[in-house]
C-alpha cells in the first residue's frame, strides 16, 4: 500500500469509526491546513492532500494497487469510514513546497512499482532519471519506513522522510532505509507544479451529501441484513415449532392412539397455535386440555406417563432454543 513519509504529526491513529468525514474535512479546511491526511483501512489507504485549507488531491489505493482519484476516492473514503468498522486516521503537516511535491506525485504516473532494491541496478536507474531530465520521485520503503527523493529535470531536489516537515538536503535517512532488508523502490513521474490543477475538491464535491447518502445506504444495508436475519430467525423458529408439534403428536398418539393427533390439533388451535408449546401459561392450558380428553380414552397410569413425557420434551426443547 501507498506509504508516505510521516512528516510532522498533528494527529495519529485516530479511530475512523468515531469520525464523520464532513466534520474532518471542514476542520482541516477552515484551519488552513497544509499537509496530508492518511486514512488506513485493512483493504485500502486513502491520502488527502491539503494546501492552505484547499483539498487539492485525493487518492485511494487498495491492497492490489488499484487506484481511484478525486470524487471517486472521496466517495470510497466515505463508504469505508461508514462500513469498515475499523481504520485509523493520521494528519501530518508539511511545508507548502513538499505538499505540492506530494500532490504532483499523487497526480503523476507510476513507472516502476515495488522493485526489490537489491535486484535492480540503482546507478543505471538514477542515470536514466538524469539523462531523461525527469520530473519525478523515487520512493524507497520497507513495511514500516519510507523516504522520498524528488527530482526536477533530472536533478535531485531534496529528500523527504519520516519526521521531516519540509524538503531536506540530507540523504542519510534515505540511505538508511535503502540498507534495510526487504527495501523496495517505486519510481514516479510527476507533473510540474504549473501543470497540476489547483482545484479545491471541497468546492466541487458536496461532501455532506456524499456522506449522508453513504450513511443512508449503509443504514438500509443494515436494515436489509437485519430484516433478512429476522426472517431467517422466524423461519427457523417456525421450523423448530413444527418439529416440536410433531414430537408432541407422536407422544400423544403413542398413548392415546390415532385420535391423539386430532386431540393435539384441536388443543393447539384453541390455544393460539403451536407457539403455545413454548409459552408457560399456554403449555399448561394445552396440557390440561390434552389430559381432559385423554381421560376419556386411556388409563390414569398412562395419562401420568404421557404428561411426564410431554413435559420433559417441552422442557428440553425450551432449553435448546
Amino acid at each position: 500500500m501507498f506509504l508516505l513519509p510521516k512528516g510532522n504529526p498533528l494527529f495519529e491513529n485516530l479511530a475512523v469509526t468515531k469520525l464523520k468525514l464532513p466534520d474532518v474535512l471542514l476542520k482541516l479546511s477552515t484551519g488552513g491546513f497544509t499537509g496530508y491526511s492518511s486514512f488506513v483501512f485493512q483493504t485500502s489507504t486513502v491520502i488527502l492532500v491539503f494546501e492552505a485549507g484547499k483539498l487539492v488531491s485525493a487518492l485511494l489505493e487498495d491492497r492490489n494497487g488499484k487506484r481511484q482519484n478525486g470524487f471517486e476516492a472521496l466517495s470510497a473514503l466515505a463508504e469505508l469510514m461508514v462500513s469498515s468498522g475499523s481504520g485509523t486516521m493520521n494528519v501530518y503537516k508539511l511545508s507548502k513546497d513538499l505538499t505540492m511535491c506530494i500532490h504532483a506525485l499523487l497526480e503523476g504516473e507510476t513507472l516502476y512499482k515495488a522493485q526489490e532494491l537489491k535486484l535492480i541496478d540503482i546507478n543505471s536507474l538514477l542515470g536514466k532519471v538524469k539523462n531523461d531530465r525527469m520530473n519525478g520521485c523515487l520512493r524507497i520503503y520497507t513495511e514500516e519506513h519510507s523516504a522520498m527523493i524528488f527530482y526536477k529535470e533530472g536533478n535531485p531536489l531534496g529528500f523527504f522522510h519520516d519526521g521531516s516537515g519540509d524538503i531536506e538536503s540530507s540523504s542519510s535517512e534515505s540511505q538508511k532505509i535503502a540498507g534495510l532488508p526487504g527495501a523496495k523502490i517505486d519510481l514516479f513521474a510527476t507533473q510540474s507544479v504549473e501543470e497540476i490543477m489547483g482545484i479545491n475538491l471541497l468546492e466541487v464535491a458536496n461532501i455532506q451529501k456524499i456522506w449522508d447518502a453513504t450513511v443512508a445506504l449503509h443504514q438500509s444495508e443494515i436494515d436489509r441484513t437485519n430484516k433478512e436475519r429476522q426472517e431467517r430467525d422466524i423461519k427457523a423458529a417456525t421450523l423448530r415449532l413444527a418439529e416440536l408439534e410433531e414430537q408432541v403428536k407422536v407422544i400423544v398418539g403413542e398413548y392415546v392412539g390415532k385420535v391423539g393427533r386430532g386431540i393435539v390439533d384441536k388443543e393447539l388451535s384453541e390455544n393460539g397455535g403451536n407457539s403455545c408449546l413454548i409459552d408457560e401459561a399456554g403449555f399448561a392450558k394445552f396440557l390440561s386440555g390434552v389430559e381432559r380428553a385423554a381421560k376419556l380414552l386411556i388409563s390414569g397410569t398412562n395419562i401420568k406417563a404421557m404428561m411426564e413425557k410431554l413435559t420433559s420434551t417441552i422442557t428440553i426443547a425450551k432449553s435448546d432454543s
Binding site: V256, G257, K258, V259, L296, L297, I298, S299, N302
Partner: peptide, 9 residues
C-alpha cells in the same frame, strides 16, 4: 372404530 387403538376401546 374411531378409538380402537386406545385403552378403552
Amino acid at each position: 372404530l374411531a378409538i380402537k387403538d386406545s385403552d378403552i376401546s
